[in-house]
Amino acid sequence: MLFENFPPPVGAVTTRQELAQSLGLASSQSWTGGIIAVDRARQVLVFSDPAEGVKHGYTFDGWVPDGDDFGPLYLYTGAGPTGHQKLSGANAPLLTLAEKGRDLHLFVADGKVPGTGTKYQRYVGQMVMDRQPYEERWNVDREGALRRVYVFRMRPVDQQVVVHEQDLMPPAPRTTSLLIPATVNTATFTYAEQHSTDEATLGWQEPRVVRRREGALRTAFEERLVALGHEVGTYQLQIRGERGVFTTDLFDATDKVLFEAKSSSSRHAIREAVGQLMDYRRHISAPGLRCAVLLPERPNDDLQNFLQSVGIASVYRDGDDFAGYPLV
Protein backbone atom coordinates (compact mmCIF):
# COMPACT_ATOMS: atom_id res chain seq x y z
CA MET A 1 0.00 0.00 0.00
CA LEU A 2 1.40 3.39 -0.98
CA PHE A 3 1.26 6.06 1.72
CA GLU A 4 1.26 9.75 0.94
CA ASN A 5 3.54 10.58 3.85
CA PHE A 6 6.36 8.83 5.64
CA PRO A 7 6.32 7.04 8.01
CA PRO A 8 3.27 4.85 7.43
CA PRO A 9 0.93 4.01 10.32
CA VAL A 10 2.33 1.50 12.80
CA GLY A 11 1.36 -2.00 11.72
CA ALA A 12 0.85 -1.03 8.08
CA VAL A 13 2.16 -3.46 5.45
CA THR A 14 3.97 -2.06 2.43
CA THR A 15 6.98 -2.76 0.19
CA ARG A 16 10.41 -1.21 -0.21
CA GLN A 17 9.39 0.34 -3.53
CA GLU A 18 6.34 1.99 -2.01
CA LEU A 19 8.45 3.28 0.87
CA ALA A 20 10.93 4.77 -1.59
CA GLN A 21 8.07 6.56 -3.37
CA SER A 22 6.71 7.85 -0.05
CA LEU A 23 10.13 9.35 0.61
CA GLY A 24 10.20 10.99 -2.81
CA LEU A 25 12.78 8.62 -4.28
CA ALA A 26 12.56 7.44 -7.87
CA SER A 27 13.46 3.80 -7.17
CA SER A 28 14.30 1.33 -4.43
CA GLN A 29 16.74 -0.65 -6.60
CA SER A 30 19.66 0.21 -4.31
CA TRP A 31 17.72 -0.88 -1.22
CA THR A 32 19.16 -4.38 -1.13
CA GLY A 33 20.63 -4.26 2.37
CA GLY A 34 19.04 -4.39 5.76
CA ILE A 35 20.15 -0.90 6.83
CA ILE A 36 19.19 1.96 4.51
CA ALA A 37 20.19 5.57 5.15
CA VAL A 38 18.05 8.11 3.29
CA ASP A 39 20.12 11.28 3.49
CA ARG A 40 17.66 13.73 1.95
CA ALA A 41 14.90 12.68 4.36
CA ARG A 42 17.23 12.24 7.35
CA GLN A 43 15.91 8.76 7.97
CA VAL A 44 17.46 5.34 8.58
CA LEU A 45 15.30 2.34 7.73
CA VAL A 46 16.08 -1.09 9.13
CA PHE A 47 14.56 -4.15 7.44
CA SER A 48 14.60 -7.20 9.68
CA ASP A 49 14.00 -10.66 8.22
CA PRO A 50 14.87 -13.33 10.82
CA ALA A 51 13.95 -16.23 8.50
CA GLU A 52 16.34 -14.95 5.83
CA GLY A 53 19.00 -14.18 8.43
CA VAL A 54 19.16 -17.81 9.56
CA LYS A 55 20.59 -18.66 6.11
CA HIS A 56 23.62 -16.53 7.00
CA GLY A 57 23.92 -17.89 10.53
CA TYR A 58 22.03 -14.96 12.09
CA THR A 59 20.03 -16.36 14.99
CA PHE A 60 19.89 -13.32 17.25
CA ASP A 61 17.09 -11.19 15.72
CA GLY A 62 13.74 -10.33 17.29
CA TRP A 63 12.11 -9.05 20.46
CA VAL A 64 13.71 -10.39 23.63
CA PRO A 65 13.05 -10.09 27.37
CA ASP A 66 14.95 -7.17 28.88
CA GLY A 67 16.74 -8.00 32.11
CA ASP A 68 16.92 -4.29 33.04
CA ASP A 69 13.14 -3.90 32.62
CA PHE A 70 13.35 -0.74 30.51
CA GLY A 71 10.63 -1.82 28.10
CA PRO A 72 10.63 -3.72 24.79
CA LEU A 73 14.02 -4.46 23.22
CA TYR A 74 14.55 -5.49 19.60
CA LEU A 75 17.83 -7.12 18.57
CA TYR A 76 19.09 -6.84 15.02
CA THR A 77 22.20 -8.49 13.57
CA GLY A 78 24.37 -6.09 11.58
CA ALA A 79 25.57 -6.33 7.99
CA GLY A 80 28.34 -8.60 6.75
CA PRO A 81 27.70 -12.29 5.94
CA THR A 82 31.33 -13.50 6.13
CA GLY A 83 34.36 -12.59 8.20
CA HIS A 84 34.33 -10.31 11.22
CA GLN A 85 31.68 -7.63 11.01
CA LYS A 86 32.68 -3.98 11.32
CA LEU A 87 31.00 -1.04 12.99
CA SER A 88 31.86 1.08 9.97
CA GLY A 89 30.41 0.88 6.45
CA ALA A 90 26.88 -0.50 6.22
CA ASN A 91 26.51 -0.64 10.02
CA ALA A 92 27.64 2.94 10.66
CA PRO A 93 24.20 4.61 10.21
CA LEU A 94 22.97 2.95 13.40
CA LEU A 95 25.74 4.57 15.43
CA THR A 96 25.60 8.04 13.92
CA LEU A 97 21.88 8.79 14.22
CA ALA A 98 22.22 11.72 16.62
CA GLU A 99 25.33 13.04 14.91
CA LYS A 100 23.57 13.21 11.54
CA GLY A 101 20.15 14.19 12.89
CA ARG A 102 18.39 11.10 11.56
CA ASP A 103 15.35 9.17 12.79
CA LEU A 104 15.30 5.37 12.93
CA HIS A 105 12.43 3.19 11.69
CA LEU A 106 12.04 -0.59 11.94
CA PHE A 107 10.28 -2.86 9.44
CA VAL A 108 9.88 -6.64 9.66
CA ALA A 109 9.37 -8.95 6.67
CA ASP A 110 5.79 -10.26 6.64
CA GLY A 111 5.02 -12.55 3.71
CA LYS A 112 5.30 -11.96 -0.04
CA VAL A 113 3.34 -10.11 -2.66
CA PRO A 114 1.26 -12.84 -4.39
CA GLY A 115 2.87 -14.21 -7.53
CA THR A 116 6.19 -12.42 -6.91
CA GLY A 117 9.32 -12.71 -4.82
CA THR A 118 8.79 -9.22 -3.38
CA LYS A 119 8.47 -9.24 0.37
CA TYR A 120 5.95 -7.25 2.32
CA GLN A 121 7.38 -5.05 5.06
CA ARG A 122 5.34 -4.41 8.21
CA TYR A 123 6.10 -1.14 9.97
CA VAL A 124 6.96 -1.72 13.64
CA GLY A 125 7.51 1.95 14.50
CA GLN A 126 10.10 4.60 15.20
CA MET A 127 13.01 3.36 17.29
CA VAL A 128 16.02 4.69 19.19
CA MET A 129 19.27 2.91 19.91
CA ASP A 130 19.66 1.60 23.43
CA ARG A 131 22.19 3.20 25.78
CA GLN A 132 24.20 0.07 25.09
CA PRO A 133 23.77 0.22 21.32
CA TYR A 134 25.18 -3.18 20.46
CA GLU A 135 26.36 -6.52 21.80
CA GLU A 136 29.30 -8.46 20.49
CA ARG A 137 28.34 -11.99 19.51
CA TRP A 138 30.04 -14.81 17.67
CA ASN A 139 28.84 -17.36 15.15
CA VAL A 140 30.12 -19.49 12.30
CA ASP A 141 29.78 -18.01 8.82
CA ARG A 142 28.76 -19.88 5.67
CA GLU A 143 32.41 -20.76 5.04
CA GLY A 144 32.70 -22.41 8.46
CA ALA A 145 34.86 -19.70 10.05
CA LEU A 146 34.31 -18.39 13.57
CA ARG A 147 33.57 -14.69 13.37
CA ARG A 148 32.45 -11.67 15.36
CA VAL A 149 29.04 -10.14 14.68
CA TYR A 150 27.40 -7.06 16.11
CA VAL A 151 23.85 -7.33 17.40
CA PHE A 152 22.26 -3.90 17.65
CA ARG A 153 19.84 -3.04 20.45
CA MET A 154 16.79 -0.91 19.59
CA ARG A 155 13.92 0.38 21.67
CA PRO A 156 10.63 1.83 20.43
CA VAL A 157 9.92 5.51 20.93
CA ASP A 158 6.35 4.52 21.77
CA GLN A 159 6.57 2.16 24.74
CA GLN A 160 3.04 0.91 23.92
CA VAL A 161 4.26 -0.67 20.68
CA VAL A 162 2.50 -3.92 19.74
CA VAL A 163 4.87 -6.87 19.97
CA HIS A 164 3.73 -9.52 17.49
CA GLU A 165 4.30 -13.13 18.49
CA GLN A 166 6.00 -13.91 15.16
CA ASP A 167 8.54 -11.13 15.81
CA LEU A 168 9.84 -12.64 19.04
CA MET A 169 13.30 -14.14 18.85
CA PRO A 170 12.60 -17.88 18.53
CA PRO A 171 13.63 -20.11 21.44
CA ALA A 172 16.85 -22.01 20.84
CA PRO A 173 16.06 -25.49 19.43
CA ARG A 174 19.03 -27.02 21.24
CA THR A 175 21.66 -26.10 23.82
CA THR A 176 25.03 -25.03 22.41
CA SER A 177 28.18 -23.66 24.00
CA LEU A 178 30.76 -21.79 21.97
CA LEU A 179 34.21 -20.98 23.37
CA ILE A 180 35.22 -17.57 22.05
CA PRO A 181 38.06 -15.09 22.67
CA ALA A 182 37.61 -13.05 25.82
CA THR A 183 36.50 -9.54 24.96
CA VAL A 184 34.94 -6.82 27.05
CA ASN A 185 31.98 -5.01 25.55
CA THR A 186 32.92 -1.33 25.73
CA ALA A 187 29.90 0.03 23.86
CA THR A 188 29.42 3.30 25.72
CA PHE A 189 27.77 5.47 23.07
CA THR A 190 25.16 7.83 24.54
CA TYR A 191 22.15 9.15 22.67
CA ALA A 192 20.91 11.63 25.29
CA GLU A 193 19.31 13.93 22.72
CA GLN A 194 16.98 11.10 21.65
CA HIS A 195 15.52 10.62 25.13
CA SER A 196 13.29 13.22 26.77
CA THR A 197 13.14 11.37 30.09
CA ASP A 198 15.89 11.79 32.63
CA GLU A 199 18.40 8.92 32.71
CA ALA A 200 18.11 8.42 36.47
CA THR A 201 14.30 8.22 36.21
CA LEU A 202 14.57 5.46 33.62
CA GLY A 203 17.00 3.59 35.86
CA TRP A 204 19.80 3.59 33.27
CA GLN A 205 22.50 4.86 35.56
CA GLU A 206 22.80 2.14 38.21
CA PRO A 207 23.05 -0.86 35.83
CA ARG A 208 25.66 0.99 33.75
CA VAL A 209 27.76 1.77 36.84
CA VAL A 210 27.59 -1.86 37.94
CA ARG A 211 28.64 -3.08 34.48
CA ARG A 212 31.55 -0.66 34.37
CA ARG A 213 32.83 -1.84 37.77
CA GLU A 214 32.48 -5.48 36.83
CA GLY A 215 34.11 -4.80 33.46
CA ALA A 216 37.09 -3.03 35.04
CA LEU A 217 37.60 -5.89 37.52
CA ARG A 218 37.28 -8.50 34.79
CA THR A 219 39.70 -6.67 32.51
CA ALA A 220 42.33 -6.32 35.24
CA PHE A 221 42.15 -10.03 36.05
CA GLU A 222 42.19 -10.99 32.39
CA GLU A 223 45.38 -8.98 31.95
CA ARG A 224 46.86 -10.78 34.96
CA LEU A 225 46.08 -14.19 33.45
CA VAL A 226 47.43 -13.23 30.03
CA ALA A 227 50.66 -11.95 31.65
CA LEU A 228 51.03 -15.41 33.21
CA GLY A 229 50.78 -16.97 29.74
CA HIS A 230 47.28 -18.34 30.20
CA GLU A 231 44.80 -18.76 27.38
CA VAL A 232 41.68 -16.80 28.26
CA GLY A 233 38.24 -16.94 26.71
CA THR A 234 34.54 -16.91 27.50
CA TYR A 235 31.54 -19.06 26.64
CA GLN A 236 28.55 -17.99 24.58
CA LEU A 237 25.57 -20.15 25.51
CA GLN A 238 22.27 -20.67 23.76
CA ILE A 239 20.00 -22.81 25.92
CA ARG A 240 17.20 -24.92 24.55
CA GLY A 241 13.84 -23.24 25.00
CA GLU A 242 15.40 -19.86 25.91
CA ARG A 243 15.36 -16.71 23.82
CA GLY A 244 18.59 -14.77 23.57
CA VAL A 245 22.19 -15.52 24.42
CA PHE A 246 23.97 -15.97 27.73
CA THR A 247 27.62 -14.98 27.94
CA THR A 248 29.79 -16.05 30.85
CA ASP A 249 32.54 -13.90 32.27
CA LEU A 250 36.14 -15.16 32.04
CA PHE A 251 37.17 -18.72 31.33
CA ASP A 252 40.77 -19.62 32.08
CA ALA A 253 41.28 -22.31 29.44
CA THR A 254 44.73 -23.14 30.82
CA ASP A 255 43.52 -24.01 34.34
CA LYS A 256 39.92 -24.84 33.30
CA VAL A 257 38.35 -22.29 35.66
CA LEU A 258 35.11 -20.43 34.96
CA PHE A 259 34.97 -17.03 36.71
CA GLU A 260 31.89 -14.93 37.44
CA ALA A 261 32.77 -11.31 38.28
CA LYS A 262 30.74 -9.10 40.61
CA SER A 263 31.10 -5.43 41.47
CA SER A 264 30.41 -6.12 45.15
CA SER A 265 31.42 -8.73 47.73
CA SER A 266 28.00 -8.57 49.39
CA ARG A 267 25.89 -11.60 50.22
CA HIS A 268 23.40 -10.74 47.50
CA ALA A 269 26.11 -10.46 44.83
CA ILE A 270 27.80 -13.70 45.88
CA ARG A 271 24.51 -15.61 45.97
CA GLU A 272 23.79 -14.35 42.45
CA ALA A 273 27.25 -15.39 41.23
CA VAL A 274 26.88 -18.87 42.71
CA GLY A 275 23.54 -19.35 40.96
CA GLN A 276 24.97 -18.22 37.64
CA LEU A 277 28.01 -20.48 37.91
CA MET A 278 25.97 -23.54 38.90
CA ASP A 279 23.66 -22.91 35.95
CA TYR A 280 26.42 -22.24 33.40
CA ARG A 281 28.57 -25.22 34.30
CA ARG A 282 25.75 -27.65 33.49
CA HIS A 283 26.02 -26.59 29.84
CA ILE A 284 29.82 -26.49 29.46
CA SER A 285 31.71 -29.63 28.52
CA ALA A 286 35.20 -28.98 29.83
CA PRO A 287 36.88 -31.89 31.67
CA GLY A 288 38.04 -30.83 35.12
CA LEU A 289 36.01 -27.60 35.05
CA ARG A 290 36.18 -25.57 38.26
CA CYS A 291 34.29 -22.41 39.23
CA ALA A 292 35.25 -19.24 41.08
CA VAL A 293 33.78 -15.85 41.89
CA LEU A 294 35.87 -12.78 41.09
CA LEU A 295 35.31 -10.02 43.65
CA PRO A 296 36.58 -6.50 44.40
CA GLU A 297 37.46 -7.34 48.02
CA ARG A 298 37.62 -10.28 50.42
CA PRO A 299 34.17 -11.56 51.45
CA ASN A 300 33.51 -12.10 55.16
CA ASP A 301 34.24 -15.44 56.81
CA ASP A 302 30.67 -16.72 56.63
CA LEU A 303 30.50 -16.06 52.88
CA GLN A 304 33.88 -17.72 52.41
CA ASN A 305 32.51 -20.79 54.20
CA PHE A 306 29.38 -20.68 52.03
CA LEU A 307 31.47 -20.70 48.85
CA GLN A 308 33.59 -23.58 50.12
CA SER A 309 30.45 -25.56 51.00
CA VAL A 310 29.26 -25.41 47.37
CA GLY A 311 32.68 -26.10 45.87
CA ILE A 312 33.27 -22.62 44.46
CA ALA A 313 36.50 -20.71 45.02
CA SER A 314 36.90 -16.97 45.60
CA VAL A 315 39.44 -14.65 44.01
CA TYR A 316 39.50 -11.02 45.06
CA ARG A 317 41.53 -7.85 44.66
CA ASP A 318 44.39 -7.44 47.11
CA GLY A 319 46.04 -4.13 46.38
CA ASP A 320 47.51 -4.33 42.88
CA ASP A 321 47.22 -8.12 42.80
CA PHE A 322 44.61 -10.82 43.33
CA ALA A 323 44.38 -13.11 46.37
CA GLY A 324 43.09 -16.64 46.15
CA TYR A 325 44.81 -17.25 42.82
CA PRO A 326 46.15 -19.61 41.64
CA LEU A 327 43.45 -21.92 42.91
CA VAL A 328 44.65 -24.82 45.02
Rank of each mutant, 00 (worst) to 15 (best):
L237E: 06
T77F: 06
V157A: 02
E231W: 10
P93Q: 02
V315S: 05
P326H: 03
N91V: 02
R137P: 09
Y325G: 00
L228D: 14
R267N: 12
N185A: 08
Q85D: 00
F60H: 14
P9H: 03
F3A: 06
N305W: 11
G67N: 14
N91S: 11
R243E: 01
G71Q: 03
G244R: 14
G78M: 02
G80I: 00
L45T: 04
V108T: 12
I270N: 12
L178N: 03
I270R: 08
P93S: 09
V54Q: 15
E193L: 12
Q43C: 11
K86S: 13
G111M: 13
F259H: 07
V161C: 01
P326I: 00
V163L: 07
L73C: 02
Y150M: 07
N305C: 05
D321N: 15
G311V: 07
D61W: 13
D279F: 11
F221H: 04
G117S: 12
T96E: 09
E193I: 14
P93F: 06
E231S: 08
G11Q: 13
D249T: 00
P72L: 10
Q236A: 13
V245D: 02
S285K: 09
L228T: 09
P173F: 09
A220E: 15
F60E: 13
G34W: 04
L250H: 10
R122E: 12
V293F: 07
H164Y: 15
Q276S: 09
I312S: 10
S264H: 06
A323I: 04
A37M: 13
Q121H: 05
N91P: 05
A253R: 04
A172M: 00
I284C: 02
L45F: 09
G203P: 05
F322W: 11
A145H: 13
A92K: 04
T188M: 05
T77Q: 13
V245A: 06
E260R: 02
A98T: 15
T32K: 14
S285Y: 01
E297Y: 02
R155V: 03
G215P: 08
I180W: 02
P171T: 10
V108Y: 14
S285A: 11
T32P: 09
T82M: 09
Q276V: 03
L168N: 12
S28C: 05
P287S: 09
S309W: 13
T82G: 04
D252A: 07
G101E: 14
D69I: 08
I239N: 08
L168I: 01
R240S: 14
S27F: 03
L250M: 06
L97V: 12
H164F: 15
A41E: 05
P65F: 10
L2V: 13
G125F: 07
V293N: 07
P133G: 12
V257F: 09
T118A: 03
I35T: 07
D279R: 15
D255S: 13
P299T: 01
P181W: 02
G229L: 04
G241W: 15
P207G: 04
F6D: 00
E52I: 00
L168T: 01
P81E: 08
L237N: 05
V113K: 06
A261Q: 07
L73Q: 07
P326Q: 03
L23S: 11
A313N: 09
D39Y: 03
V54D: 12
A292P: 15
T188V: 10
V38S: 03
D249V: 01
P181C: 01
S28A: 05
R298C: 15
V315Q: 06
R213G: 10
V315R: 01
